[in-house]
């Protein structure tokens, strides 16, 4: 039972509770950045930040799609495989001499189609998203090796130009085109979530599916849509990854779904759905990127610390979500 007063209960120094996780992530990011700057002189270089974006652009795009799915209370394990499949397929089609524009269109269609199908199975047959997207993950990964057992290089001029184009001062601070694309995806994603009925239905569905149904919201369509959106984001992420590596490899992006889920959760989106922001996801991806950069800068720490630290942060944020959840009751 809550209080009988007409005014909402406010605490946390008047910060609305829904912003607490995002602010925690922002604080964490700033602290990590400050630590980096104080420890390593080169860290303060603006290009360090740009590089974080360049290296994690595709992760960011995929994470935006995952944010949609997790906001409905679902999960999409297939993203890593779909990223790899998209990259593989693009590389293979380009190798076959297809027009780059046509390749882009096809590559951008396959991911959402798979997502749409998974969404349909989840909605119509009421099978847990976990299992359905697991099958999707197997399927997409299997497709990768079905296309080719070894990595396919990309030599297409459009692809190489996309990979090499530097925006900004080419000798000074710059970002790649992928970063711009990632930003566009972030902005579109944030707009859809905040300003369209689809976006608000996503939140409603994650808040209380039963209520959403009784309020007459298109629950089924929304559910299918988020998996299609996640598929689309994975497809875009796959293309960005192929820009980045200029190849398609069957075993690339293995385990990426875990990084993506971790980024979304660290970004303050609640795994049970209904609460979270694309902006938080951006912060979550940045936290992951900065951890990697810090560990690279340190030199004495090894890469596996990344996983341990991510696991630790995941624990901390899940615990924070749980505590806020308890406070609500």
């Amino acid at each position: 039972m809550t209080t009988t007063s007409l005014t909402p209960t406010r605490d946390w120094w008047r910060i609305p509770q829904r912003y607490v996780p995002v602010l925690a992530t922002l604080t964490l990011l700033l602290v990590m950045y400050a630590v980096g700057v104080s420890q390593y002189r080169a860290f303060s270089n603006v290009q360090v930040i740009f590089n974080v974006f360049i290296d994690n652009g595709f992760l960011l795009v995929v994470a935006v799609g995952m944010t949609f799915v997790i906001l409905t209370g679902g999960i999409d394990l297939s993203v890593g495989s779909v990223v790899a499949m998209t990259a593989m397929m693009s590389a293979s089609l380009l190798q076959g001499g297809m027009d780059p524009a046509a390749v882009l269109v096809i590559a951008l269609l396959v991911g959402p189609t798979l997502g749409f199908l998974m969404g349909c199975v989840i909605h119509f047959f009421e099978i847990q998203p976990f299992i359905v997207t697991l099958a999707g993950m197997f399927f997409a990964r299997g497709m990768c090796t079905f296309i080719s057992k070894s990595s396919i290089p990309i030599t297409d001029p459009f692809w190489t130009s996309m990979a090499q184009e530097r925006i900004g001062d080419p000798r000074g601070n710059f970002v790649s085109i992928s970063v711009l694309i990632a930003f566009v995806v972030v902005v579109v994603g944030a707009f859809v979530l905040a300003y369209t009925r689809l976006g608000r239905n996503v939140y409603a569905l994650g808040g209380n599916q039963q209520s959403a149904l009784l309020m007459g919201l298109p629950v089924g369509q929304t559910k299918i849509a988020v998996y299609a959106i996640s598929g689309l984001c994975s497809a875009i992420g796959g293309i960005l990854l192929s820009f980045y590596t200029l190849s398609g490899a069957p075993l690339i992006a293995v385990g990426m779904e875990l990084d993506v889920i971790a980024a979304v959760v660290i970004g303050g989106t609640v795994l049970t759905g209904g609460s979270g922001y694309v902006f938080g996801t951006v912060l979550g991806v940045l936290v992951l990127g900065v951890i990697r950069t810090l560990i690279t800068f340190d030199g004495s720490l090894n890469s596996w610390w990344t996983k341990i630290v991510i696991g630790g942060l995941l624990f901390a944020f899940i615990l924070l979500q749980r505590l806020i959840g308890i406070r609500k009751k």
Binding site: L258, A262, T306, V309, I310, G311, G312, F315
Partner: peptide, 13 residues
């Protein structure tokens, strides 16, 4: 999921 992510790191550690 926490140990799934961090466990690989622990094993490598």
């Amino acid at each position: 999921l926490i140990l799934m992510v961090a466990g690989r790191g622990l094993a490598q550690l």
